[in-house]
Nucleic acid binder design. Sequence first.
DNA 1: TTGTAAGCGTTATCAC
DNA 2: GTGATAACGCTTACAA
Lengths: 344, 344
Amino acid sequence: MPSTVRAVAKLAGVSPMTVSRVINNAESVAEETRQKVLRAIAQLDYVPNRLARGLTSSRSSTLGLVVPDVVNPFFTLVLRGAEAAARRAGYRLLVCDSENDPRREREYLEDLVSYRVDGLLVAPASQRSKAGLLPLLRRGFPFVLIDRSISNMDCDAVQSDNVAGARRLTEHLIAIGHRRIAHLVDSDDNSTGRERLQGYREALHAAGIECSDALLFHTSVDRIGGYRAVQSMLASQPWPTAIFAVNNMTAVGAMEALRERGLGVPGDIGLVCFDDVEHLAVLSPFLTVMDQPAETFGSLAAQMLVERVEGKGGDSGRRIVLQSQLIVRESCCIKTGVPARTAL
Amino acid sequence: MPSTVRAVAKLAGVSPMTVSRVINNAESVAEETRQKVLRAIAQLDYVPNRLARGLTSSRSSTLGLVVPDVVNPFFTLVLRGAEAAARRAGYRLLVCDSENDPRREREYLEDLVSYRVDGLLVAPASQRSKAGLLPLLRRGFPFVLIDRSISNMDCDAVQSDNVAGARRLTEHLIAIGHRRIAHLVDSDDNSTGRERLQGYREALHAAGIECSDALLFHTSVDRIGGYRAVQSMLASQPWPTAIFAVNNMTAVGAMEALRERGLGVPGDIGLVCFDDVEHLAVLSPFLTVMDQPAETFGSLAAQMLVERVEGKGGDSGRRIVLQSQLIVRESCCIKTGVPARTAL
DNA sequence: TTGTAAGCGTTATCAC
DNA sequence: GTGATAACGCTTACAA
């Protein structure tokens, strides 16, 4: 049974209003009174009830963040960046993991709204997230999309240039001699997947390589998705000489499947992906990746959100597009055998 | 300006109470009335205000989790496990990252309490977390400690057998020939650090190896800590032949420092640590670790918490101790040169 | 099956 | 500087 302002007021021999003033660092409280109240607060372990507080003041100084997969280092870093930026602006951050489930995501969105967070940072699970986001947009509730966009939705967003990134990644594979390049592509209808696929196609096309649907393997963007996609890839012939995985988790899953079949990377098959893998990059730099500035995604998005919350957002949605960086490591170098096979 | 029960009631031509009953799936509402209300809700994008709701009902079906470092895969997995278990029990999970700062941790703790979550999962930043936790304990607020314990605090907790784990890890290093084994040890006064240090000492003692303080390098349990610890380690002679890092992040930092100096692992120096590094284990199995069942930490803790929240917790604190598993990979094998040096 | 009244803990407003 | 009062949006308890 938590104590209340009233209990504190009684113990300190003042009115609840005075207690409220002390809690909120109001100027106009006599130092002596202040001390009495502070003592009473300490004695009762009093913690102000945000629920009641929010009911009147309707500003919580709290932002919400919903990510589709906290285990993915990309989103973990987004989280870290958002936390830091929010904190600098005087806000706290509450985080929820939707585990790529639009239903769960919607629940958390409503939860956070009903907790009266001042604004929301959302990395949408899929295009279906629109259903949950639309009411927010209509009501003018402040939110910023991260990483993935939603079609026909004019709102603030921080994203990558996925087309260009995927194109460069694919061009790199082509440049070092690959011709049969598989793409593990997002099965959900989501923007990053679509855009990366487009970049992949553009690069192939520019190099005069036919873009066969047989080289496209649809998958969920997680480990198990990458794993299964490569399993089905290996079930058919001829094998590609390199794989472009839609993101880091898919690449990890792909790697598992390859290893299980005794295939080495890059000895037998090359592998590249979007998003670096935190820690791995330090402990064992190996995977060639298109590295997105994940922490910056988080911090910029949080900054945008704070601006919008504080009414400086303007009318229409603002879009920030960040550039990614190609980091070439050894996972796609062509070694023994591969060029020969490619030449077929 | 979000809409309220009253607005919905008005639109639907009923009383606010009827709206409340519809929201809460009460039986006693005529189907026709229900539909009217539901339509009004949809039309107004009405989302119940949890703040107001919590003010009366005082059950939020939400749990809070505070971790010291979301970027650390150990805690990310704890989070994942806790989320899943909470969900199975009908609760949501709100997550906060204290970034190993006891002050920040305390703020978040109070935030979550003031949001009236039903219970709290806490992986304490350090022994100083006690200040924030003690009031909760006094008030009988349900919470469960994860990973690290707080001395003289009788509460629910899920932990590792750190002494045994550290002993086995050290024994392994000794068994393969290492004699000068450095330990990167937690600088904070926290339980896991203390216990791991004890295990390390026990193993050395049992093998008749002198346990010199010169081999102990105090550090913060993150990348930068490990990095600095190894820098100072390399500044003095003679170098150890192997390093036991207090956790995974410290090991990653250590690796960075070693690489910077052109030192290979395990070629020049062996390296082992507590906690596996997610993804790395798949992409490039390399580091020998004492792997803690992180996801189980989270799910068991959440289960314990739910029991306590629902009054099935009993009077005193319950402690669950989980076993870790030694995973031997190549990061500590003794290769060229090292045994010779060891023999000095 | 539906409505009325009171109150949850806080703060805004205005009075002293 | 401090206090009384009303209100925030909802639900519990009771009444119709």
